[in-house]
Design a protein around this nucleic acid. Structure first.
Lengths: 358, 358
DNA sequence: GAATGGGCCGTACACGTGTGCAAAAAGGGG
DNA sequence: CCCCTTTTTGCACACGTGTACGGCCCATTC
């Protein structure tokens, strides 16, 4: 056996040295040869197994350290059938909301020794299938999906892959999957109530026509606040954006063109509010003197706008952490809370003010 | 041989069925058994190798498809010694700049069949070492690092890991690594020249005290413009932020408190401009009537600010794509352009205007 | 009809790690 | 000194895929 190993090693090293420009990284067997033990002993030593003699283990660890040995997660993943990696699907990581969530996910993942594969779906179902397929081939131990518009679509994949999935602010309510959701209804209701308390009676809602569930819930919260206060919410005051500034500008334009334009507008999110405020300013109107504007998310720029944006805060990074925590629990076999609901907090700033006297 | 395989399969399937809740994903051998061929034939068929009979290959592919077989990238990576994955290091993916770059990297990576590991360094050297170590263990084929403040630190790791690295806007100029860099000097010089052309004579620079190289280059561009125009740039007009709005507010405060405050300020980046504008507004001054402000990056919110921000555009997503393209070339053994320089484009909006008459 | 050759397939390994089991070594008691 | 227990180590395999090599079958050629 020593002959076989030694022979191979001797052949491999110099023979490959010349033609190959980069020699492969050292393996557990290389360390074993140096330490004059068998490779299983090295394996056990590096895992701090109590099955190996303390000083032998120490010696092996020292040699491995000095040689700059890095255990192959690939080989380990093959034999243990656990890669200690997860897949993170996001519409696009360039979106500030997704970026914050990803940040939270990544940090807790790394803290627990997991690596995360990032994939942008671009809200394209075709691409979405592709990235999940890639995750399946990578044998990820779990998957987190943010703001998917096709959350339910993951269920069959889940069944096929046998891998736990956690959704963050997904758009399908009924599905019995694990998820971390913001309190859309209560959050938007609080924003609307705030505007009502400021004396507004003509309050618009600038939504996300593709937002499905979260948009529906926020719209419901807006309606509930108005309903309770006995304020009408005519259809003309509900405008459709797409969650981005550009479409929000067009939607705001429509609202401003109304015979009786609103004196306040609840936006689906901060990106929409960005577009709305821009349009209002472009029309020579002022926020909040002429129109009050509220957002949702509390993205980093909200407090730096002129005027600072009143908005409903989502603890995005924390939600990412919570999603990862939940996934960690699921991956270790424990059951986790199926649907985690996160409270939203109204942050009042200067973009909302008392209504102008009609 | 049929006996051995069959026997093992028969034992494995029902014996494991009861206690294990999830059976392992099907392997190439399972497909081979169904198709009544050997597993190498399946392997070749799925790779579209010409070494296997066309109709046999077709049949195998059909069976694999119907069975929902997903080849294990883990096992393939072990034998081919190429994982078709890369590592992406970023200070934090919550930063809009990093998010855009990551988006570009991820897209081209996926288009070429590569998966990307995401890791936030938080500008913490300790954590940075940790993530690179993780990448080494994952046996990534390449690494991309954005805006690292310790770019040179990667050189020894590079040597150790035998893996190509591409840096995006790194902070060390002299190092002979591959990188994609924005034209910091020319970009900021253009911004300063623009302000000079508007009649400004007292122009400040709000920099990034930790920005090292990119800050130094942008500051040099600013100085060059002023120097050429014969305009003094006293030290009091160079204030230090940290590239984020909060510190920029403090820096702006100092500039405003000067005996002769500036009539224009060139900010290191858009995030700094955000803070600067906020502070200016809070002091009851107006942009651009009282003070002109310019940024750098052209982040998504720049055109939606009040007033829209004049800034120097960095094609961030494209830079991410270029970095990945460069890395793809390096990984396939070709040589690539060592330092790719990307032109910056001044985008004039409404945050800059002609100087007030003194 | 035998030799040659090409197309196609299977056998045998390799990749680097983890682990059950047996064997060896060490220690302790009679 | 031997036997038994405990500690420590090595052997043999497994994980799922890729590939060099040899062999089989069939067609072609001398």
């Amino acid at each position: 056996m020593a002959e076989k190993d030694g022979g191979k090693a001797l052949r491999a090293a110099p023979a490959e040295g010349a033609p190959r420009r980069s020699q492969p990284p050292l393996s557990i067997k290389d360390i074993a040869r140096i330490a004059r033990v068998s490779h299983p002993t090295v394996s056990r030593a590096l895992q701090n197994s109590p099955l190996v003699n303390a000083e032998t283990a120490e010696k092996i660890r020292r040699i491995a350290e000095e040689a700059g040995y890095r255990a192959s997660a690939v080989a380990r993943g093959l034999v243990t059938r656990r890669t200690r990696s997860i897949g993170l699907v996001v519409t696009t990581v360039a979106d500030p909301f997704a970026g914050e969530v990803a940040c939270g996910v990544e940090q807790t993942a790394n803290d627990h020794g997991y690596s995360v594969f990032l994939a942008d779906s671009n809200a394209d179902p075709e691409r979405e299938r592709k990235v999940v397929r890639a995750f399946a081939e990578r044998r990820v131990d779990g998957i987190i999906v943010t703001s998917s518009r096709v959350g339910a679509l993951y269920l069959p994949m889940l069944a096929e892959m046998q891998v736990p999935i956690v959704l963050v602010n997904d758009q399908y309510p009924g599905a019995f999957v694990h998820s971390v959701m913001i309190a859309n209804f209560e959050g938007m209701r609080a924003a609307a109530e705030h505007l009502i308390a400021l004396g507004h009676r003509r309050i618009a809602y600038l939504g996300d026509q593709f937002g499905y569930q979260s948009d529906a819930e926020r719209l419901a919260g807006y309606r509930a606040a108005l309903g309770t206060a006995g304020i009408p919410a005519p259809a003309e005051l509900v405008a459709d954006g797409d969650g981005k500034p550009e479409a929000a500008m067009a939607a705001m334009e429509k609202l401003l063109a109304l015979e009786r334009p609103p004196t306040a507008v609840c936006c689906y999110n901060d990106m929409s509010a960005l577009g709305a405020m821009r349009r209002i300013g472009a029309r020579g109107l002022r926020v909040p003197e002429d129109i009050s504007v509220s957002g949702f998310d509390d993205l980093f720029f909200a407090s730096y706008l002129q005027p600072p944006l009143t908005t409903v805060r989502q603890p995005m990074r924390r939600m990412g952490r919570m999603a990862m925590d939940s996934l960690l629990r699921l991956m270790s076999g424990e059951e986790s809370v199926p649907r985690i609901r996160v409270d939203a907090e109204l942050v009042v700033r200067a973009s909302t003010a008392t209504a102008r006297a009609d």
